[in-house]
Design a protein around this nucleic acid. Structure first.
Lengths: 332, 332
DNA sequence: TTGAAAGCGCTAACAG
DNA sequence: CTGTTAGCGCTTTCAA
């Protein structure tokens, strides 16, 4: 019932050896004599020794720990990415320390510094929007960084994502091809991904001499939010014939509200979402969406990050575009 | 571009002081002279000093870090709990290290030991099913542990949850009150919560001289899974008139499949889910469900855990039952 | 107000 | 095969 945990020294004393022998045993039992092994085995079994990773990390060995910062836990998108990260990290024996920044680069900066103070070996970030201070710290730290979900011209190190702008451009083009003319974009937290998607839509519209509206609630997406926003939209812009949402839950909310109002989808109003979530594809009337590789982004980014760490090469920058797929469903 | 990060010593040398003075400055700038303060300020600004938390933690101060183990990131239930944990941890200046055990107590045991080796101050676990070895390590470590999502007779320290069995009992009673006789329970990963819920249903049925079926796919719940299982159920037990699911996504899958098959809900088949997710309550036909306090469980458990840590009292065990609410919706 | 010494628990390097 | 020494970078304590 002691306040202090058992140390290697304690084990060694109990086994009549020095901590060095016990240390060797821990890393590779075959490196100590049969005799010692038995003695240590016995003591260990009785005392639930908890290894202490800190001294080793403190003396400059790696920590086999990756930092992860996501905007929010309450968004399935990032849960999927996290799952991918965990899978690969676990496979390679890496721990993860996860923090969330609530979509705020300033908070993100603090989290980055905190994670660095724990001696993480590498860092996975969402998006490419970081404060200058954060960039400075990251450069000083010298650890490899992976940015997920977006592709930009200037990766810090590793970048794994897809082209949000192009995806929205393509989906919008599909709306137009089907004769829709009065499009509205519904965003959520107004993060850079939302912005790129809106930009893509605008560009596609412009190419056809059209223009569109947009709603940026600055809130986390949900079905309830989608319903609420659609009520607003249909009042303010009754001529709307197409709605493109930055997330499938928003789009499902819109779809349900259309059903409630006897608005025909897609004849009166066409709807598309983003990400290709279960919620949309399992629906009776399948939701059109841009299917994104969320799990894969986590997996690939973590794999590349660990590869850099293991090979101890600080390779040049590396960008992987995992692409996306348009799913037309029944709402387009 | 050095491989080694800057230490307090380095800063001190550059500022013409000793590391002790810089250390004091870091904790409280008013504890050093105006002169020193200026010198340190200046050096700091130029070098992005990253504090090193390890030495302090190593020498026995707390780490202000909590460990968290959840079954999976791909289940909104735990994302909500996580969010609650993060909110409170952040407010009190605590970091979290999060791991997932894929619903496997054996994996959970490993994760517990790993987290302990990082000197966490406290630990939040999902559920109350732990290996004996895990229990031994936890006791030896002496840190306070919070168990979430369930209420049992023997908490380790803190337990924050609700009565899964009673909740299912109550919901089943409601089914029966409405004349349903042929109930089927759909579980997911067959974790102890699933088991308690199934038990609650069985008890309520027995009280009325009824019995029920159950399906335990051993997979993570999803709408698609719900649809698939319902197809099986309706084939194998065509007389089924009520379906109770351990999660709302499963229930929504069932509901959609009913719609596809022109089965009237709730007249032909009544449906209820569990947790009260957006997906069910935002639906046109509102899904009956047991509404659970997921965010609150995370918040309350973390608050209690931190309170114990700050007061340095290893209080006796503490159990908080946050309850649940039945929502009858339109499917009952 | 500042400095010097000791120590947290481990492992790398070197000896025996 | 096993032991000894030194050191990672802080903070605590004691001293000046």
């Amino acid at each position: 019932m002691k306040r202090n945990r058992m140390s290697l020294q304690d084990i060694a004393t109990l086994a009549g050896l020095t901590k060095m022998t016990v240390s060797r045993y821990m890393r590779d039992p075959s490196k100590v004599s049969e005799r010692s092994r038995g003695a240590i085995d016995e003591v260990m079994r009785q005392h639930n020794y908890i290894p202490n990773r800190l001294p080793e990390i403190l003396s400059g060995a790696g920590s086999r720990t990756l930092g992860v910062i996501i905007p929010s836990f309450r968004n399935q998108i990032f849960s999927d990415v996290l799952e991918g990260i965990q899978q690969v990290a676990e496979k390679h024996g890496y721990q993860t320390i996860i923090a969330s920044d609530n979509y705020d680069p300033q908070v993100g900066q603090e989290k980055i510094i905190t994670l660095l103070s724990y001696h993480i070996d590498g860092l996975l970030l969402t998006g490419t929007q970081h404060t200058q201070t954060a960039r400075d710290y990251l450069k000083t730290s010298g650890i490899p960084v992976a940015e997920l979900m977006e592709i930009t011209a200037e990766p810090l190190d590793i970048q794994v994502g897809f082209d949000n702008r192009q995806a929205a451009f393509d989906m919008t083009t599909e709306f137009i091809r089907r004769g829709k003319q009065q499009m509205v974009f519904i965003g959520a937290m107004d993060d850079p991904r939302d912005a790129s998607r809106y930009q893509g839509m605008t560009q596609a519209l412009q190419r056809s001499g059209l223009s569109g509206q947009h709603y940026l609630p600055g809130a986390i997406s949900s079905m309830a939010l989608g319903r609420r926003l659609f009520q607003q939209i249909i009042t303010q812009h009754p001529q709307t014939d197409a709605i493109f949402c930055t997330n499938d839950d928003l789009a499902m909310g819109v779809l349900l509200e259309c059903q409630a109002r006897q608005i025909r989808v897609p004849e009166d109003i066409a709807i598309a979402g983003f990400h290709g979530l279960d919620i949309g594809s399992a629906n009776q009337q399948k939701l059109a969406s841009v299917i994104t590789p969320r799990l894969e982004m986590g997996q690939v980014a973590t794999g590349l990050l660990i590869a850099q760490l293991e090979e101890r090469r600080k390779a040049g920058t590396e960008t992987v575009d995992l692409g996306y797929r348009l799913f037309n469903g029944d709402t387009l």
